[in-house]
């Protein structure tokens, strides 16, 4: 780890100008990924600008009934927040499925979105890796890629995005808000992560030296009936092999709204729009769920050793949607109406 300067800031403006002024300066929040990568020699910032004293840790309700998650709110705080748990259960579940209690107490919303892939070749500076050293090649393509991408990869990079939290946020159409010295901006999470293309080192649409200030999750009735399911090589404390965030709103046997995103399969959380379209507006049946799952993974291109992830992704979509359909059926069969009819219609354009 190379030597670096450290400063703590209490004003967003100060943080921004410090990072603008110093070459090689980086924002530091929870540090769970950045400090790790600094030890590995993958990151070597000349200056760390600690942003945890900025007033960005809040979790609040937005006027439209959605949520504003402050960039430095810890994963633990978001997962335990009553509003999150009530309105976006899949978000709480996804965070709790990630890392460990200790790491969730440190990790923040903004840092979680910006975390780097856990591809072992990326983490080892002695290996070629286009994401770390553009143009050096992709070791995983012909190497050990058992847990690499099956969707959206190119020959330049087959790494996956490791975040659990970003998967339901993608399904819920979250928007990333940021500040720059030129003023604020925002970008939908669906456009936040850039396609791999031939420059896997360029990961996000965040402007250079911008600071994420919040993630806005729009109100969506369907999100109240959501679920996150993560499959991994041990029962806890491991990155996803495949994960699914799903939300399903069924009224009178018809899918009013559905949200579906996959983790562990691509360089970004994979919004399963094909499956969503196939289901939306139609009756909810086992056959249609099955067909939607098949449709979504039809485009998958597994590598030599990760074909099982296609099956796993397909089965997991089916399993989570089926469980949601079954529980929504039970709910509407019980306390009729569920107090939700008519509210918060979502267009699916």
């Amino acid at each position: 780890m190379r030597e670096f300067a450290y400063q703590r800031t209490t004003q967003i403006r100060d943080a921004l100008s410090s990072v603008a002024r110093h070459d090689g300066a980086r924002f530091l929040a929870g540090g769970t990924n950045l400090v790790d990568l600094m030890k590995a020699g993958v990151e070597s910032p000349a200056r760390l600008v600690d942003i945890r004293s900025l007033a960005l840790g809040g979790i609040s309700e937005s006027p439209d009934g959605g949520l504003v998650l402050g960039a430095t709110a810890t994963n633990s705080a978001v997962a335990a927040d009553p509003l999150v748990r009530r309105r976006y259960p899949a978000l709480s579940q996804a965070i709790l499925a990630g890392a460990s209690g200790q790491l969730r107490n440190m990790a923040t919303v903004g840092g979680n979105l910006l975390q780097r892939t856990r591809c072992a070749y990326f983490a080892d500076p002695s290996e070629p890796c286009n994401k770390r050293a553009p143009g050096s090649g992709c070791s995983a393509l012909g190497g050990a890629h058992h847990n690499h991408a099956i969707l959206g990869w190119t020959e330049h990079c087959v790494a996956t995005h490791p975040s659990d939290m970003a998967v339901p946020l993608t399904a819920f159409d979250a928007v990333v808000r940021y500040e720059t010295l030129d003023g604020p901006g925002e970008v939908p999470l669906s456009e936040f992560y850039l396609p791999v293309g031939d420059r896997p080192d360029r990961e996000t649409a965040l402007p250079d030296r911008a600071l994420i200030t919040a993630v806005v999750v729009p109100a969506a009735e369907v999100a109240g009936k959501s679920r996150y399911r993560k499959v991994r090589e041990r029962a806890s404390y491991a990155f996803a092999t495949v994960s699914v965030a799903a939300a399903l709103d069924v009224q009178d046997g018809v899918v009013r709204d559905v949200r579906l995103a996959l983790g562990g399969v691509a360089s970004r959380p994979w919004r399963a729009r094909l499956a969503e379209s196939a289901l939306r507006g139609g009756p909810v049946t086992a056959e249609r769920i099955s067909a939607a799952a098949d449709l979504e993974v039809a485009a998958a291109e597994p590598l030599r050793d990760n074909g099982y992830k296609v099956t796993l992704a397909r089965n997991l979509i089916e399993a989570v949607l089926t469980d949601l359909a079954a529980s929504s059926g039970a709910a509407s069969g019980g306390a009729a109406g569920n107090g939700a009819a008519g509210a918060g219609e979502e267009s699916d354009g």
Partner: peptide, 18 residues
């Protein structure tokens, strides 16, 4: 693992200066 302001954290990824 230690308790930092009461919360459990991993001290290996916590910089002392932080």
């Amino acid at each position: 693992t230690v308790l930092l302001d009461g919360d459990r954290v991993v001290s290996c990824l916590t910089l002392a200066v932080v």
